[in-house]
Amino acid sequence: MDKDSEQALINQSAKGDAIAFRRLVEDSQNFALSIAYKFLNNMADAEDIVQEAYIRVWKNLHRYDHDFRFKTWLGKIITNLCLDTKKSSYRKMLINPVDVTTTQSASDANETGRQLEHEELKEIIHKLAASLTEKQRAVFILRDLQQLEPDEVCTILAMSAGNLKSNLYYARMKMKNLLEEYYNEKKRLSMDPTH
């Protein structure tokens, strides 16, 4: 959807036009769900967050800043909701760090980290991200897992370009090291005959 059509739909929606709002929802719901899912790693929770986000959008359409794209604004609302939702669950994950033996299936006991199933990798990344700070986690998910442009991430997180790079550097470095530790431990366990 081009920017002019988007602005027209936003203006109509702000006047109470539900049909125009429905078109905005249809155009952006996959993007919204993808961000929420990358944060929460659970489809049901992600759907709840997206629904809540659209209710907030509807209520605050009169405050919409036309300098930003609709999806950037929506992404900001979803990110804030996800960060609030995940605070407690990330704390739980930090208390119970990743257990290599529980994420390892019998069939792939001899596989290296590179050969991990996609779903398993996703699960591990989600758990390892719990050890990042909130800002590092947010930039990592939005930039690396959702692949938003740097300026979009800066707008969503109200962050300078320098701050973004700094958080991204530490997030990537920590995640890479944690992932390597995980793979090494998995490899060691697969070679250990007692396991």
Partner: peptide, 24 residues
């Protein structure tokens, strides 16, 4: 990138839109 390339879509897009619109 392999995680990022995963397409995330609702199981039933029309039903998902309908549930959002009902809440709105």
């Amino acid at each position: 990138n392999s995680i990022a390339s995963q397409e995330v879509k609702p199981t039933n897009a029309a039903a998902f839109t309908a549930s959002i619109m009902a809440a709105v």
